[in-house]
Amino acid sequence: MPAVTAVPALPALSTQAERLIELGVHEIAGLPAAELRAFADAAGDPAGDEDGGVLLAVHPDRAPASALAPLLRRDGKPGFVVTDMPDVDEFAPLESVAVPDSPLHLITGVDRGDRMANWSPDEALPALTAEARTPLLLTEGIHWVLQQPAALERNRCFMTIGSRLRKPDGTLDSRTPALWISNGTGRDGRERRKAPKVGWCWAGNRHTWLGFASATGRRPGTL
């Protein structure tokens, strides 16, 4: 396994807002570009607020994973959702994950969770909770890579276990979402080799190349 490399800090919130506007995320979310810019301006400069900076994210109800994933790019190839995850947008925040009830929010202290590589999601969630950290949602993980592509690194990818699918009987589906880099095998297709990929792993399984992305908290910001 290659040595762990630090993920570069996030850009300023104003720069993040412009990036989302450039990608058309504001249109997906049904938000005027001016509102996104005003939100970032009102939040101010987060430098020094948290290690790695502060991430600007759109609520998953406004910008679902299926719409965000194709905006990812790596080696000129767009991101995609695995074919056996047609219900990706039905993965919702866990009851223990508090997401601000607003179109936009801020995420502090984002970490890729490399130290938890080779842990299972069932093992990682209680450990993060004990550390007063909150697991990222799938859409938040996509936002992070949109703003900082270096967060997704070969053999250093991550799970986003804040999002889970609840079955009709109330129990959780055993799939847990993750972001990694396709090898272009199987149903992915050779043309998708090295492309960013939204997929899933079983909640009880371990993978040496997947950490667990988390944050210190979320806040709604102001306008």
Rank of each mutant, 00 (worst) to 15 (best):
V110H: 05
I142E: 10
Q147L: 12
P149K: 06
D111E: 11
P135T: 01
S120K: 03
H105A: 11
E131T: 04
A130V: 03
P149W: 06
D111L: 10
D111I: 01
P126H: 03
G109P: 06
G162T: 00
V145W: 04
S163E: 01
L125P: 02
E140I: 05
C157A: 15
I142W: 06
A124Y: 05
D122I: 09
E123M: 12
S96E: 04
A127D: 10
G141R: 07
L146Q: 02
G113F: 11
F158C: 11
S96Q: 06
P121M: 03
P149A: 09
R156L: 11
P126G: 10
T108L: 13
I142Y: 06
H143E: 06
T139R: 08
L152F: 04
T134H: 12
H143D: 06
G162H: 01
V110N: 07
D114V: 10
R164H: 04
L138M: 07
L137E: 04
N155D: 14
D114S: 14
R133V: 13
T108Y: 13
R154C: 14
L152V: 00
H105C: 12
A130T: 09
S96D: 07
P103T: 03
I161H: 06
S163V: 01
D111W: 03
G162W: 00
A117I: 05
V145G: 05
A132Y: 13
A130I: 02
G141W: 02
W119D: 11
R133W: 11
C157Y: 00
A98H: 13
D111V: 04
A151S: 13
G141K: 06
H143Q: 07
A127N: 12
L137V: 02
A132F: 15
R166P: 00
T129V: 09
A150I: 00
H143I: 04
N118H: 13
P135K: 05
S163T: 00
E140R: 03
V110D: 00
M116P: 11
P103K: 02
P126I: 09
S120Y: 05
D101L: 13
L104F: 00
I142S: 08
V145M: 09
S120V: 02
T139S: 10
A127K: 14
L104S: 08
L104M: 09
M159Q: 15
V145I: 15
E140F: 04
H105Y: 11
L128S: 01
R154N: 11
S96R: 13
Q147F: 05
Q148K: 10
